[in-house]
Write a protein that binds this DNA or RNA. Structure first.
Length: 572
RNA sequence: GCGCCUGUAGUGAAGGGGUUAUCACCUGAGGUUUCCAACCUCAUGUCCCGGGUUCAAAUCCCGGCGGGCGCACCA
């Protein structure tokens, strides 16, 4: 933040090199929408690939993929429609905006059901004051819907739908399938990467607040009574945390994950585990460790579903930016979907340690007597007998039916029996811990932290010190000159390297060698292979390390082996 | 959404009611060159969009779109 022009130079470089660009620019652009260019798209793909591998490595988490178009019911159940359809009223004096239903609270028994006209009437007739400036002059209230609406189907029968505001609902929709896939045993998780959509009022700060953005979310389902054991003893690093949002002395502390859990700084061990996994991921893709902190949410900024929530914030040119949210969503989503969908398959079975055997006394109905006696009422009499909690000592007795009417039960109608009832377990709704990653924000900070401006022989020189695993290409082949067969040898080598699975190699033969090194450095290619005169004689090339420009000569065959085994770095 | 500032080649800038809009870097072709943005020749490419004022608008005015900052909003 000390150098205000750095962000402009970085943005210009990202555009010039085809990394991040404004979308639809020839039509004037659309704010909140960006393109990943030919270089940026490779970086994005690799970051996402790293993220997927980071979570799926243990086998308890699988990847799924679900539609971005989401029917309205789903988002009603999840709470998004309600949350996003609030009416907003703006004070014409001081421009403060407030949720209209909260302003008229106390002037109407149920403000939720009011439309904008009714809200405006109440605001004006009661002269409700602006909480900020105490004036009473309101602009007409407007619904604030941060979801992009659409219709499924064309004609009358079309259904209201929205572009998903998060990928999480896809995982909840697939819970029954996941439960089967994991042999009906918790814990397990599902991840999804893809686009999310929020029609932001004012997108700002480049790629920080977008209207269409890359999300990567994990839903990890656990039994709250038997949370998974976690071992964080291997993680010795002291992490910046800002806990205790409601305490008086809110400040940043440095503490290991293990101690944070032990000392109740992080209350939920599973949340703590995911905080540490999040840390590992961010370090792995090249985020600067000193620019990461975890901040616990305050009560009033907590999402409508979350019980406890931590943000992972990263420091960059825009200040501290929330890049990951880790929330304990408890059973909110699954329970709500059960209720709205009438499904009963969003649960898990918890076996008791010991089978509970109950000896229970019941009155078993003699249907041959009850039938003729009560006729069409017989059914409800039988169900009332079955649900009877306290078996009366003496017969006859008066039994109340569901409809409130009473019947008399005599000893001829029932048999007094004792039955063995064994209960092996119970159904419950799993809790879910959700780490949600804003991929674009993370990529921004990767670029920000990797972007280095140095001086080289009196000239400005840019470097993108990307980690090997997320650089847009693994290597670049450069013929020293495009003659004497050097160009040919370079093209052959480039082809050989690109034939390897998962390896991406570029080739560049235009302009001077120094300029080509500079271009490769600026987009973050870690290794440059130079084909020179000696190559033609002895089949050796030089390998140049981006970060310090050191060069080593090596036999082509050996180099190909090193590339194939991802061990080029061991050369130096 | 409000307020202030703002929009000129790919990037960064200069200029500005009147011939063909300027510069650097970049990019491309050729030359030269035995490893770090060298040099020479040539070339491509620009006034955000729409309306208005005017004989004439890239320039002035209005609106839109985009960008920056502040306020507001923001899972």
């Amino acid at each position: 933040m000390t150098d205000e022009k750095r962000i402009e130079r970085l943005s210009a470089m990202l555009k010039r090199r085809g990394i991040i660009l404004p979308a639809f620019e020839i039509y004037g652009g659309v704010s909140g929408l960006i393109d990943y260019g030919p270089v940026g798209a490779s970086i994005r793909r690799r970051v996402i690939q790293n993220w997927i591998e980071h979570w799926t490595i243990n086998g308890d988490i699988v990847e799924i993929d679900s539609p971005t178009i989401t029917p309205e019911n789903v988002l009603i159940a999840s709470g998004h429609v309600g949350e996003f359809n609030d009416l907003m009223s703006q004070c014409e004096k001081c421009s403060s905006a407030f949720r209209a239903d909260q302003l008229v609270e106390g002037h109407h028994p149920n403000p939720d059901i009011l439309n904008s006209k009714e809200i405006d009437e109440i605001l004006n007739s009661n002269k409700i004051k602006c909480p900020n400036c105490s004036q009473s002059q309101w602009a007409p209230s407007k619904p604030m819907n941060l979801m992009f609406g659409t219709k499924i189907g064309a004609m009358k029968s079309s259904r209201q739908a929205y572009m998903r505001p998060e990928t999480a609902q896809g995982m909840f929709m697939l819970y029954p399938s996941l439960y089967r896939h994991f042999r009906q045993k918790l814990p397990f998780g599902a991840i999804q990467t893809g686009k999310g959509y929020r029609n932001e009022i004012s997108p700002r700060q480049g790629m920080i607040r977008l209207r269409e953005f890359n999300m990567a979310e994990l839903e990890y389902f656990i039994d709250p009574e038997n949370p998974p054991e976690v071992d964080l003893s291997a993680s010795k690093e002291k992490i910046s945390m800002i806990p205790d949002p409601n305490g008086n002395q809110r400040k940043e502390i440095k503490i290991t994950f293990q101690d944070a859990i032990k000392n109740n700084v992080i209350k939920d061990t599973t949340v703590g585990y995911f905080l540490s996994k999040t840390w590992d991921f961010l370090i792995g893709v090249g985020i600067d460790a000193s620019k990461i902190r975890f901040r616990q949410h305050e009560g009033n900024e907590m999402a409508h579903y979350a019980e406890d929530c931590w943000d992972c914030e990263i420091l960059g040119e825009h200040g501290w930016i929330e890049c990951v949210g880790i929330a304990n969503r408890t059973c909110h989503d699954l329970q709500s979907h059960e209720k709205y969908s009438n499904s009963n398959s969003l649960r898990a079975w918890r076996e008791f340690d010991e089978v509970k055997v109950e000896n229970k006394e019941i009155l078993s109905p003699r249907t041959s007597v009850l039938g003729p006696q009560f006729r069409d009422k017989a059914g409800s009499v039988i169900s009332a007998l079955e649900s009877l909690e306290n078996i009366p000592e003496n017969l006859p007795f008066t039994l109340q039916l569901d409809d409130g009417s009473n019947v008399e039960i005599t000893s001829e109608m029932v048999d007094r029996k004792t039955i063995n009832n064994s209960v092996a377990g119970e159904w419950f709704t799993p809790h879910v811990i959700e780490p949600a990653f804003g991929i674009d924000r993370i990529i921004w900070h990767i670029l920000d932290h990797a972007f280095e401006e140095i001086e080289k022989e009196g000239e400005k020189y840019n470097l993108l010190k990307l980690k090997e695993s997320i650089s847009p290409a693994d290597l670049i082949v450069l013929p020293l000159f495009e003659k004497d067969g050097m160009g040919m040898a370079a093209r052959k080598l480039n082809t050989q390297i690109n034939q390897m699975q998962g390896v991406k190699c570029l080739i560049d033969s235009s302009k001077s060698i120094g300029r080509r090194y500079a271009r490769a450095d600026e987009i973050g290619v870690p290794w440059a292979i130079t084909v020179d005169h000696q190559t033609l004689e002895d089949e050796t090339v030089t390998v140049r390390r981006r970060d310090d420009q050191k060069q080593i000569r090596i036999d082509i065959g050996q180099l190909l082996d090193l590339i194939n085994t991802n061990l080029v770095s061991t050369l130096f």
